[in-house]
Write a protein that binds this DNA or RNA. Sequence first.
DNA 1: TGAATATCGTCAAGTATCTTGACTATACGG
DNA 2: CCGTATAGTCAAGATACTTGACGATATTCA
Lengths: 160, 160
Amino acid sequence: MVKELDEKTDVLPDHVGWRLWQASRAWQAEFAAAMRAAGHAWFSEARAGLLGHIPRNGTRQSALIERAATSKQAVQQLLDGLEAEGVLERLPDPRDGRGKLVRYTRKGLDALRDGDRIKLQIERGYIDRIGEQQFAALMDALRSLDAGQGDASGEAPGSK
Amino acid sequence: MVKELDEKTDVLPDHVGWRLWQASRAWQAEFAAAMRAAGHAWFSEARAGLLGHIPRNGTRQSALIERAATSKQAVQQLLDGLEAEGVLERLPDPRDGRGKLVRYTRKGLDALRDGDRIKLQIERGYIDRIGEQQFAALMDALRSLDAGQGDASGEAPGSK
DNA sequence: TGAATATCGTCAAGTATCTTGACTATACGG
DNA sequence: CCGTATAGTCAAGATACTTGACGATATTCA
């Protein structure tokens, strides 16, 4: 009993939450590494999360804020960074003097293209690892989970 | 075409990475909300990530650093916070004048107990939503993915 | 028309988390 | 005892996010 303190007697990480977190982290680390290896050194997970809400043809900043589940200020700061990196540009909205349009630059579109390629690569790796059938089961379960959740999630903060 | 700018034409979030991220976020948000509702206002995801590596009987700080995949300084800062909240306490290691033992306080053990209860609650909710079979398939796939990954992950940073 | 109100974006300051670098104290090997 | 490795700390900076306050434009409606 006073032998080695016996770590790992409990705290067994085998509940859904831990497994999901683990898997998500692994995916993101792999993706980020590949993106940086592809020359997109500006890439980060937070920025990726935002870019995932910007369609290829651009969007209004306010529409972007609605989609991303954070405050408008957080979105703005991320946009500032991405604009400074030359990934995005902001133009005045001709139809609303208050608004601005967010649009990809050439550099941004190149990154999107590489991102899509890398996603497919990673997915192929997963299928190699666990088989096509189990991969399909994983996707089905995740989609069901998402669909079954509905609108139970919270409001975006900072929107006062 | 000049009608409504037609958002959501692309950027379809249906690849593994996005689904995993989404599911993981949802779980964590639900867990954190339940923990705070149970009176553990000090709870945060980063702290949870660290607590997940501390067995109920405590551990040495150095052992903890090995397990958590971050720098010793990050671990220390989280421990500082948790100690200040009264969740943990640090004692000198009687067997090594350099080391310290990290141990739960009564408050910390209470939180662990509530955490376990909440995990089961959430899991039950998932099973209600997607069925026992699909839930089992999800867990199997996640476990296979983890097992198939091996040691491909990077070293802990900051360990110079 | 024109005033009240709402929306869009910005500026500023603070918090949490994590990073790198430098440092002290203790342990251990020869 | 001495050199080196290990355990933990202190300090400073970067990133991501939060709340609060604000100016500019749009919309509503009396």
